[in-house]
């Protein structure tokens, strides 16, 4: 029984990070209407900036994360301005090619600046504590709590403020939003900023229990795709729920089936869910 609870908690940790990354991807999907392949690169850059702030400038982990999420948010906005905005009237395939281009560029840049080596990020929250017979590290608790707080803040922002609601409105009908006096340029930039922040936050939180390397975004972004497909493209509750479903399935699968197969579980899950419900769990209507 202890093993089960331990694994459920691990699933919660992993799922929290997946949800953060998938949320950014699903928000940007509302603007671009294609999955942004470069999102995984933002995740990777986020981890590196936090790492560099800690090792080179000696910043505290928390401050390093703050610097990282703001920087990656701005990189994300820059990407929208110089790559996607000029392509706004072109075909989806051009967006996809551009997104892959940005991905390759950022990865090559990471190789150039930080090299190909695996880096270890040290957290000041490595303490181990016992709660109800479970052995937890402070870092994992930090991941879960921070992710949930971030999601609640995002939810309140989207639901309770005009600026947040304009993001949802633009995703549902871009011209409709424009005709209501919403500045769609500003909304697009804001959405990319939030997506960058969420990616950097997810990466910085999970790096101390994983490793930092140029291709660290690959598997995460593939899984984030699976999550937003499972959850329904563009759906916000779908991204959160999908993230946790995947996190739990992986950690349970790793324990009771084989840890060698933990990464394949995401894709098996994808096949099963797409077979049963091809539109995803929180599928949108025709409109």
């Amino acid at each position: 029984m202890d093993v089960l609870f331990q694994q459920l908690f691990n699933g919660l940790t992993v799922g929290s990070v997946y949800s953060l990354v998938a949320l950014g991807l699903t928000l940007v999907y509302g603007i671009l209407h294609i999955p942004n392949f470069a999102h995984g690169a933002l995740y990777m850059v986020g981890a590196y900036i936090t790492y560099t702030m800690m090792t080179s400038l000696g910043l505290h982990y928390v401050f390093a994360i703050v610097v990282s999420i703001i920087s990656v948010g701005l990189i994300s906005v820059l990407m929208e301005r110089i790559v996607f905005h000029p392509l706004r009237d072109s075909t989806p395939i051009q967006h996809k090619v551009a997104a892959i281009g940005v991905l390759l560029f950022l990865e090559a840049l990471a190789h150039y600046i930080w090299g190909a080596d695996y880096q270890q990020m040290v957290t000041p929250y490595g303490q181990v504590i016992e709660v109800f017979g479970l052995t937890l590290t402070m870092q994992r608790i930090l991941i879960v709590v921070t992710a949930i707080v971030a999601m609640i803040l995002l939810y309140l922002f989207l639901k309770k403020t005009y600026t947040g609601a304009s993001i949802i409105a633009m995703a549902q009908n871009r011209e409709g939003a424009h005709l209501m006096g919403i500045n769609t340029n500003k909304v697009a930039m804001l959405t990319f900023f939030i997506a960058g922040v969420l990616a950097a936050l997810g990466a910085s939180l999970t790096s101390p229990i994983n490793l930092v390397f140029p291709s660290m975004g690959h598997l995460v972004i593939l899984k984030a795709f699976v999550i937003i497909i499972i959850g329904g493209m563009g759906s916000i509750p779908g991204a959160i729920l999908g993230g946790y479903i995947l996190g739990f399935s992986e950690s349970i699968g790793a324990t009771y089936i084989s840890s060698d197969y933990s990464d394949i579980i995401a894709f098996v899950l994808l096949i099963i869910i797409l077979t049963i419900k091809p539109q995803g769990i929180f599928a949108k209507g025709e409109a």
């Binding site: 609601a165 409105a169 549902q172 009908n173 011209e175 409709g176 005709l179 006096g181 500045n183 949108k284």
Partner: peptide, 23 residues
């Protein structure tokens, strides 16, 4: 830009309505 035109006082109700269907 369209948003400035709305601010100036012209609003359009488009043919396909352009509602936000899930709101």
């Amino acid at each position: 830009t369209p948003d400035k035109i709305v601010k100036a006082g012209i609003v359009q109700c488009a043919e396909d309505r352009k509602l936000f269907p899930e709101m």
